[in-house]
Design a protein around this nucleic acid. Structure first.
Length: 493
RNA sequence: CGGGGUGUAGCGUAGCCCGGUUAUCGCGCCACAUUUGGGAUGUGGAGGUCGCAAGUUCGAAUCUUGCCACCCCGACCA
């Protein structure tokens, strides 16, 4: 491991790229645009998955798995959907390889051409709705509440680790309902689930809102989203939940018999979050020393570093460390004792800071003498000496972790609040966007043309129409046309 | 996919313009010793198809062409 990380203030995106690699989260792979998620990074993703999965089950959903490949004809059944994804689909055309004439390489066997080409899923609405057609006959089969954990492929031109890769991991929920009302409620519910997860587990404050027509999911009637703010003031869409109306039901002919005996198309939703959340987590909290992880998602919550001279001291410290570990584990805290003799304590301190371990406990000869330990917290980089006679260590650390979780959230919340700026003129809009960044709360005339024009002029897009936007008469920032509420603009990832 | 840049050991680099001994330095790695409360020190050692391919040449890391990968800026996107 090499020393030092670029400074956020000097080059934010370089800082991000280096941090992802140096903290052992992910690296680029031999395949263009695809990443290798390394064990430490994957551990964090697993913790996210576990909690999200629990929340999905709690709201009545069940997991299933649908195929990676989608027949080409399926994709074209929903017009706007295919239009949205066509440009970034990987296509499978053959099913066999063979040795070349001279035997020097393997080539695609031209005789093994597929009759119908297969698309590697960019999302699974089409396969799933073609299946739902067979699963749904009556109102008694509804609602159908299914989620799948899967990988998807979107052939991106420019990729960045976690934020945009050609292949990524995600979950996609796909539900079918008897009424429009119920489907909308489901859509909104899942947005709230995402927001709760982001705030309580990722310590990431988000704005809940609705997308404008331009930013909406291809094939949806409405897209709800949670938007997070990164430390450079840019927005990152952290999760989306779509009300699909009857679009996919109509495209795949999914009808059900109502209580009254009539046939009707079902109402659909879909919702997803991806490994992009990893990017959000990294960019929201980390500093120039490395990763800062919220305790609830940290693979290692506490690391114990011994400081010693000679084997005798190490043995004595190890005894103490084992007692501590037992006490911490009894509280469900994940703890690692780093007794490697190959690195000095200072090296270990820096390493665990880089990796974002929330709490570090150092035990040295002085501590043995005084029956104390030194406890350091990653988020504030502060240290304190704690007497083990005065506190029950398990409880102490448990409370400290909770405090860190809260403190990280509050810090991000304060940053977010300070960087949502109300602007009332075009000059002000440009100036704030340029000099301060963050989200701009401004009036907009509601047309796609104006939105498009603002994007061309400033690179800022409408991130969402916040759910809590209050009715407020105003005039559009660009055109001066009347507007009923403010929307949030920002430059986005 | 357009414009710009970079590619030399695991990582970061010098050398390239002006072709010519055994390709430079730092970190990391291995061994031993001394060290251990914030990224240790010394001594010795290992590690290279100079991104890939073709060409020019007596001779290519260095010149030419093509390709590939990555980074930055655009268009597209979760």
């Amino acid at each position: 491991m090499s020393k030092g990380l670029p400074k956020r203030s000097e080059d934010y995106s370089l800082w991000y790229n280096e941090l992802v690699k140096k903290a052992d989260l992910a690296e680029n792979s031999a395949v263009r645009g695809c990443m290798v998620i390394k064990p430490y990074g994957y551990s964090i993703w697993e913790k996210m998955q576990a909690e999200l999965d629990r929340m999905f089950k709690e709201t009545g959903h069940t997991n299933a798995y649908f195929p990676l490949f989608i027949p080409k004809s399926y994709l074209s059944k929903e017009a706007s959907h295919v239009e949205g994804f066509a440009k970034e689909c990987a296509v499978v055309t053959h099913y066999r390889l063979k040795n070349s004439e001279d035997g020097s390489e393997v080539i695609v066997d031209p005789d093994a051409k597929l009759e119908e080409e297969l698309i590697v899923r960019p999302t699974s609405e089409t396969v799933i709705w073609s299946t739902y057609k067979n699963w749904i006959q009556s109102y008694r089969d509804l609602p159908l509440l299914v989620n799948q954990w899967a990988n998807v492929v979107r052939w991106e031109m420019r990729t960045r680790l976690f934020l945009r890769t050609a292949e990524f991991l995600w979950q996609e929920g796909h539900t079918a309902h008897a009424t429009k009302q119920e489907a909308i409620e489901e859509t909104v519910q899942m947005m709230h689930v995402y927001a709760t997860f982001a705030e309580q587990f990722m310590a990431l404050p988000v704005v809940k809102g609705v997308k404008t027509e331009n930013e909406r999911f291809a094939g949806a009637e409405d897209t709800y989203c949670i938007e997070a703010m990164m430390q450079d003031g840019k927005a990152l869409q952290a999760g989306t939940s779509h009300f699909l109306g009857q679009n996919f039901a109509k495209a795949f002919d999914v009808k059900f018999a109502t209580k009254e005996g009539k046939l009707d198309f079902v109402w659909g939703t879909s919702w997803g979050v991806s490994t992009r959340l990893m990017g959000a987590l990294i960019m929201a909290h980390s500093d120039d020393n490395g990763l800062v992880l919220p305790p609830k998602l940290a693979p290692i919550q506490v690391v114990i570093v011994p400081i010693y001279k000679g084997e005798e001291q190490l043995d004595a410290i190890s005894e103490k460390a084992k007692e501590l570990m037992a006490a911490l584990r009894a509280k469900g805290i994940s703890v690692k004792f780093d007794n490697r003799d190959t690195h000095k304590p200072g090296f270990k301190f820096a390493e665990y800071e880089l990796k974002g371990v929330p709490v570090r406990i150092a035990i040295g000869p002085k501590d043995l003498e005084n029956n104390s330990v030194e406890i350091a917290r990653r988020d504030l980089l502060s240290k304190q000496t704690v007497s083990l006679a005065d506190v029950e260590i398990g409880t102490f650390v448990e409370e400290l972790l909770a405090e860190i979780q809260d403190s990280i959230y509050q810090k991000a919340k304060t940053f977010q609040t300070e960087h949502i700026t109300e602007v009332n003129s075009w000059e002000e809009f440009q100036e704030v966007l340029e000099k301060k960044g963050g989200f701009l709360s401004a009036h907009w005339d509601g047309t796609g043309e104006t939105e498009e024009k603002i994007k061309t002029l400033t690179k800022a897009t409408i991130r969402c129409i916040p759910l809590d936007a209050k009715e407020e008469a105003g005039t559009c920032i660009l055109t001066g046309q009347p507007s009923a509420r403010r929307v949030l603009f920002a430059k986005a990832y």
